[in-house]
């Protein structure tokens, strides 16, 4: 576990490193909410247990920290998404290759859609 902290705790005015919020938005962007809801749905269907999920998420967070992420809470759902991608792949639900191919298709769909028009799913395009 973490071990590089300053024991001489300054007051919170001096401490931007402890992010605070009131009852602000729980999701900062729609994709965070989508990633959250997909995880809950797959768990409720029994594709993985909650301890399995927590282990994946914890591992992603630890890896991000090791990679230099200060991990202030704002990148939480990025770790969440990465953990979900990893777990659906390891459970054989959606392969990494399928994901990459679909992403490419979505990217093309987005780039060929005029601004202001809804981006249609690549399957229907």
């Amino acid at each position: 576990m973490p071990a590089d902290l300053n024991p001489n705790t300054p007051t919170h005015e001096d401490l931007p490193s402890l992010p605070r919020d009131e009852d602000g938005p729980v999701f900062r962007e729609p994709w965070e909410a989508q990633a959250f809801a997909m995880t809950l749905t797959l768990h409720e269907q029994g594709h993985f247990t909650w301890p399995e999920w927590a282990e994946c998420l914890g591992a992603e967070i630890a890896a991000a920290q090791a990679g230099g992420d200060p991990d202030l809470g704002d990148t939480y759902y990025l770790h969440w998404l990465k953990a979900l991608e990893g777990l659906v792949a390891s459970k054989g639900i959606v392969s990494t290759d399928d994901l990459a191919r679909r992403k490419e298709a979505w990217d093309i769909a987005a780039h060929t859609t005029p601004h202001g028009k809804p981006i249609t799913p690549p399957e229907d395009a």
Binding site: W31, Q34, A35, M38, L42, L81, L84, E85, V88, I93, V94, D98, L99, R102, K103, A105, W106, P121, P122, E123
Partner: peptide, 9 residues
């Protein structure tokens, strides 16, 4: 990434 995963699922 999120759209891709959601549409595949």
């Amino acid at each position: 990434r999120v759209r891709s995963l959601e549409s595949l699922l």
